[in-house]
Nucleic acid binder design. Structure first.
Lengths: 227, 227
DNA sequence: ACAAAAGTGTTGAGAGTACACCCATGC
DNA sequence: GCATGGGTGTACTCTCAACACTTTTGT
C-alpha cells in the first residue's frame, strides 16, 4: 500500500471571501518559492499526517489570516496529474466566508506578501488556481441564492439595508427593497430577529439592527423539477 | 515536500446506484483482505500516480462492473486521520448512476464477491462507508429534486409512467400523474421529446416512448431566498 | 368481463413581482 | 433646506396543488 501512495502529495487550498469597500474580495498570497515564484496564489499548504483534511484547512486559514470562527465548507478536490509541475499533488479546495468584523486587515507572516483583491480584478494565478477560484465563486453565488450563507459575511448585527447591499454586491444585481424586507421579516420560521438597537450617526433616520437567528433554517426549499 | 506526503495514501470510493425490481440498489463488494476482512464495502481502490482522481474513479468502476458510459460525479473527500486502521488514507468519494439497460448483472472479478443491495436494507459496512453511503444517498435525492439526473437511471427510451415510477422510488413519495406529465411535457425549453415509438405488450393501452433531449437544461432555477 | 395502465383539464390558493411616496436626520 | 437613507402597502400575474374519469388492451 505504501508504495502506491508514495508519489501523491495532498494539499488544501482555502479560498477566503469577504465584503469590503462595496466589493467582494478574496485573499491572495505571493509565492516566495518556485514553481511560480512571485505569482499570486490561493493560500494553502500540505496536509500533515496526523490532522484531518478539514483541520488542515482551518490551520492554514489561521496561519494566513488569524481567523478562527468562520464559515468553512469543502468545495472540490482537484486531482489532475500535471496540475503541479513539482510532481503529483492533489488538492482539496475549501471556501471560507469571513464576516466584515473578523476580516483580518493583514495576512499572517507565513506568506511573503498577501493582498485582498476584488474578485472582479484578479492577477494571473499560479497552478490551476484561476479555475479553482472561478469554481468557488460560482458555488458561492449559487449557495447564496438558496441558503442563508450571506449572513456569514456580515457582522453579528446589521441593518436590512446592509444585508440587501451585501446580496446585491455578490449577485451583481439590484433587488427590490420592499420585497426583500417583506420576505425576510415575514419568513416563517423566522430567519432574523430585532436586537432592539439602532444604527445612528449616518445621514437619515436611525436604522433598526437585526441579528441572524441561530435556530434559523438556512435553506429555502428548492423549486422542484417535478410536482 | 515529499516527506510531508509520505504517510498519506489516496483512494477513490465509488458509490454506484441503479434502479431494479422497484427499488434503488447499490453495489457492495465483500472484502477479501484485512482490515475488515469479510465485511461489505463500497467498491474503490488506490489512485495511481499517473492518473487523475476522476480517471481512477472511472477505472475502478470499470474494473468492478464493466460499466463505462455513466453519470459520474465527485461527492466529497473524507479525510479523518483514523478512518482506516492501516494508516493515513484519504478517500475521494464519487457517485455513479447506472441506467437500467447498462447495469451489469454481475460485478467484475476484482472483488471476492459482489452484490447489489437495496439501499433500504444494507449490511454493516467497513471503514466509514456507512456514513459515506448515507451522504451519497442524501445528495442523490437532493439533486434529483432540482436537476434532471433521474434520466441517467433510465434506459434511453422510456414511458412517462416509468419515469414517474423511478422518481417515486428514489424520493420515497407518490407524485400526481397529471401534474408530473404536464410539467415535463410543457417545460420550456423542452426536456424530453417523443420518439414516435410505443411500448406495447403490457396490459392496457400502448404507451408513448420518450427520450431525454441532449440539449436539455438539466436544472430548474431554484426558488431564491430573496426576490 | 375484468383488471391494469394510458391519457387528459379545471379551479382555487398562495407566492411572486412590479411599483412610489413620506419622514427623519446630518450637514 | 437639502441630500441621504429608512421605512411602508397594494394590485396583478403566474405557478402550484388538488382532484376523477374514460379508453385501451391482455388475460
Amino acid at each position: 500500500m505504501a508504495d502506491l501512495a508514495l508519489n501523491i502529495a495532498l494539499t488544501v487550498d482555502v479560498i477566503i471571501f469577504r465584503l469590503r469597500e462595496g466589493e467582494l474580495q478574496t485573499l491572495l498570497i505571493k509565492r516566495g518559492l518556485a514553481p511560480y515564484k512571485g505569482r499570486w496564489a490561493i493560500p494553502g499548504g500540505f496536509v500533515r499526517p496526523d490532522e484531518s483534511v478539514d483541520a488542515a484547512a482551518r490551520r492554514e486559514l489561521f496561519e494566513e489570516t488569524g481567523l478562527k470562527e468562520v464559515y468553512l465548507e469543502q468545495l472540490y478536490t482537484f486531482g489532475e496529474p500535471k496540475r503541479d509541475p513539482r510532481g503529483r499533488v492533489v488538492t482539496v479546495a475549501y471556501f471560507v466566508l469571513a464576516a466584515i468584523a473578523q476580516a483580518a486587515p493583514q495576512a499572517g507572516d507565513d506568506a511573503a506578501e498577501a493582498q485582498w483583491r476584488p474578485i472582479t480584478d484578479l492577477p494571473p494565478l499560479a497552478f490551476d488556481h484561476a479555475s479553482i477560484l472561478a469554481y468557488a465563486l460560482k458555488r458561492l453565488r449559487y449557495k447564496l441564492e438558496y441558503t442563508a450563507v450571506g449572513f456569514e459575511l456580515l457582522p453579528e448585527e446589521f441593518t436590512l439595508t446592509e444585508l440587501q447591499t451585501a446580496y446585491e454586491i455578490i449577485l451583481g444585481e439590484t433587488l427590490d427593497k420592499r420585497n426583500f424586507r417583506r420576505r425576510l421579516l415575514e419568513a416563517d420560521p423566522p430567519i432574523i430577529e430585532e436586537t432592539g438597537k439602532y444604527r445612528t450617526g449616518q445621514v437619515g433616520p436611525r436604522a433598526q439592527l437585526y441579528r441572524y437567528r441561530d435556530d434559523a433554517v438556512a435553506e429555502v426549499r428548492a423549486r422542484r423539477l417535478f410536482p
